[in-house]
């Protein structure tokens, strides 16, 4: 139940540890709930507000963030002992920025439609605090395989929260899911859509509710 973003390197473990040992499973599962980047660490809120008006761009954003956080964790972890500590932030930023530009270029070449929607926000992944947070707190002090797991855990933790927010925003704001008009499909023609949900204000309210529910369920309390 640690709330610090700077975790200590995980204690030395015995040799021949299983690929999915208990400790490693915990690396993946912790960020999903107890140490969720959005609801507990309150990182990455900026993009959670910006992209969650519809489910489709949100899903692409989640995948893009996953790609970037996993690979930057891996790369930084591999060269962690070579990185001069005095310029480590700029080195991390350079790696993250390069990966983000690659994602953007690939989207534009192969998923043009989607990149039209999320194009602006993909660039903003660079400033997603979750990624820098994981690099600085985890990848700089842990082995590559653990860092990959940590990347997946954080990315999934981020993804489920923004997908939940996007689900309600699209459902209530546009009356659709993945652009499929659900209310018309079940025979409600004049569903009153909530304009508030399409604006970032709606995302604030929803994230607030998600944080509230999750903290209530986990019995989490802010430290004084």
């Amino acid at each position: 139940m640690s709330t610090e973003t700077a975790e200590q390197p995980v204690a030395k473990v015995a040799k021949a540890e299983g690929l999915f040992s208990k400790r490693r499973r915990k690396i993946v599962s912790d960020p999903l709930s107890d140490d969720n980047p959005i609801t507990v660490q309150v990182l990455g809120i900026c993009s959670a507000l910006a992209v969650t008006a519809k489910l489709e761009p949100t899903l692409v954003m989640s995948i893009a963030v996953m790609f970037v956080v996993v690979f930057s964790n891996l790369i930084v972890s591999v060269i962690r002992n070579l990185i001069p500590s005095r310029i480590r932030i700029i080195v991390q930023l350079g790696i993250v920025a390069s990966l983000v530009v690659i994602v953007d270029l690939v989207l534009r070449a192969y998923l043009y439609e989607v990149s039209k929607v999320v194009g602006v926000y993909v660039g903003l992944i660079i400033t997603n605090c979750i990624i820098m947070g994981r690099l600085e707190a985890f990848a700089m002090g842990n082995k590559p395989y653990d860092s990959i797991l940590d990347g997946f855990g954080s990315a999934f933790g981020y993804a489920w929260v923004i997908l939940v927010v996007a689900f309600f925003r699209e459902l209530l704001g546009s009356g659709s899911l993945f652009n499929f008009k659900v209310f018309e499909a079940i025979g409600i023609d004049n569903f009153p859509t909530v304009g508030l949900m399409t604006s970032p204000v709606g995302a604030f309210i929803l994230i607030g509710i998600v944080i509230w529910v999750q903290r209530w369920r986990n019995g989490y309390v802010e430290h004084q």
């Binding site: 070579l82 990185i83 001069p84 310029i87 700029i90 080195v91 350079g94 790696i95 390069s98 530009v101 690659i102 270029l105 690939v106 534009r108 070449a109 192969y110 043009y112």
Partner: peptide, 25 residues
Amino acid sequence: GFAAAMTIILGGLLSVTAVGLKERQ
């Protein structure tokens, strides 16, 4: 030296990707 090497590697990687995907874009 590290900073210079990193710049060259990342810069090269990005240029190759950009040029490689340009036609398709």
